[in-house]
Amino acid sequence: MSTTESSSGKILVWGMFLLMFILHQDKWWWNDGTLVLGFLPVGLAFHAAFSLGCALLGWTAIKFAWPHDLEAFAETETTVSEKVEGSS
């Protein structure tokens, strides 16, 4: 993935995160006890859908903002001096 693709991916993911954060406040349904599907209060139904949105955001982050460089960094062999003293 090119650097440009990666940075636009990060912008997309951060934008979605911000949007999700705003949506989480859903002040518009605080006083509404309407039932969705006959049993789910709308405030709860919205937040259940919000959880699905979080999963979608996770997928988007993995697809467009995955830290490939960090992954490669972790798999590189270390020199003995880099290892922590006392580590296993």
Partner: peptide, 8 residues
Amino acid sequence: AFGKRYGY
């Protein structure tokens, strides 16, 4: 990644 690389 740091744990894997540096043995933490």
